[in-house]
Design a binder for these strands. Structure first.
Lengths: 212, 212
DNA sequence: CATTATAACGACACTATTGTCGTTTTTCAA
DNA sequence: TTGAAAAACGACAATAGTGTCGTTATAATG
């Protein structure tokens, strides 16, 4: 009648498999990873995997689902805040808490790449990637639109074009850095250059002056 | 003693298989394509494929090899030319013969993406992609360096950073357009914005004025 | 501590795909 | 036209990977 194995134990193990499987999928790609790989990484038996997931595809989908939920939370958090200046918020979205270009990249970028790759030959996975992508885009667009509304940013370029330019830039940087890692400093250099460009396109200096 | 099948016939058939296989690999990705797919696309029997290629990997490598040779030729062609102004040449490299942003992209970009994807989990294929990438980078770097030497471009940013920024931008645009195609016009808009950015970073207007 | 539901296990059957190989067909030179 | 060399073929064995299923081990409850 009553459960003989605690719910906590099940959830913990499921999460454990999910995390291990995620690493394997990232490492090897969907097609190449076998359930044997996942099994070894998670430290369970082959049969055990099927206790928690219907099959390989179901396991993969669970990973995507989890990632999407996290992305929604992250983005929601940023948009909630009420601010008087959008430039710092934009910088924060692009470069993280430090709010200025360093050798790290927007965490959304590698994930965009990942989903683009895995989704390239599979409609369902492509759809997940698209959702995430649009989610990221939306945050930038709203930030810029808000900045333009209050007069902080120039309206020379529409918010959609600016948002896509930013995401394009970040994704391109992540892609090229993945292809040719070389020195970390290169990422920072290119980012600094891009910030100059953003300031120009949004006329941030002028905008800030106007506000004062 | 003498060959009973003409060399031309063999070469033609080999090229035929190569072209068909290339399409299949692009369409399906390396892991998913089977020799059966290739066989059907090329219109030969399974056994026939092994007359020309040792195995699937060998077939794939032959396609890469061919692509690399073509890329070397294309880039070599551009660098050979003697010019008095590097800006038009830079535009030409970025946007093709039209020399100004339209909805088309540098043909190198999709190929960069392709090799990044296929090479992501395979060292040998990754190396091919890297070679191509560096080849593209080299052309931009030499163009900008030459332009800087003759005073047409500003030396504010080093040629390497500028070259990588350009390739980053193009690849990012290609990637994002691949993820979210939407209207073609968006590509043009973002490209125009990027050209403004390039003019700023290279101080092209000023440079041109100085030359006159 | 005993009971029992169920999680964990690993052998098994099934499927898909690869590369080989003996046979047939084609092609070209004499 | 004919003969031989080699290309084209497709059945075959080998391999790899999936998901199922009956059995065993384990953990919560009374």
């Amino acid at each position: 009648m009553s459960p003989k194995v605690s719910k906590e134990h099940m959830e913990k193990r499921r999460a454990n498999i999910l995390e291990a499987a995620k690493q394997v999928f990232i490492e090897m790609g969907y097609e190449r990873t076998t359930m044997k790989h996942v099994m070894e990484a998670a430290g369970v038996s082959r049969g055990g995997l099927y206790q928690y997931f219907l099959n390989k595809e179901d396991l993969y989908e669970a990973i995507l689902e989890e990632g999407l939920e996290k992305a929604v939370d992250d983005n929601g958090l940023l948009l909630e805040k009420e601010v008087d200046s959008y430039w710092p918020l934009l910088m924060k979205r692009m470069f993280g808490e430090s709010m200025e270009p360093d050798d790290r990249l927007d965490p959304l970028a590698p994930s965009n790449l990942e989903f683009f790759i895995t989704g390239r030959h599979d409609e369902r996975r492509r759809q997940y990637g698209l959702n995430r992508y649009q989610l990221g885009l939306q945050v930038y667009e709203e930030l810029i639109k808000a900045g333009q509304e209050c007069g902080e940013f120039s309206k020379t370029y529409d918010s959609k074009t600016m948002a896509r330019s930013i995401v394009s830039f970040i994704d391109g940087l992540a892609l090229d850095h993945a292809i040719l890692p070389e020195e970390e400093i290169q990422v920072k250099k290119q980012s600094l250059l891009f910030v100059e460009y953003l300031k120009m396109a949004l006329e941030v200096e002028r905008g800030n002056r106007l506000k004062k």
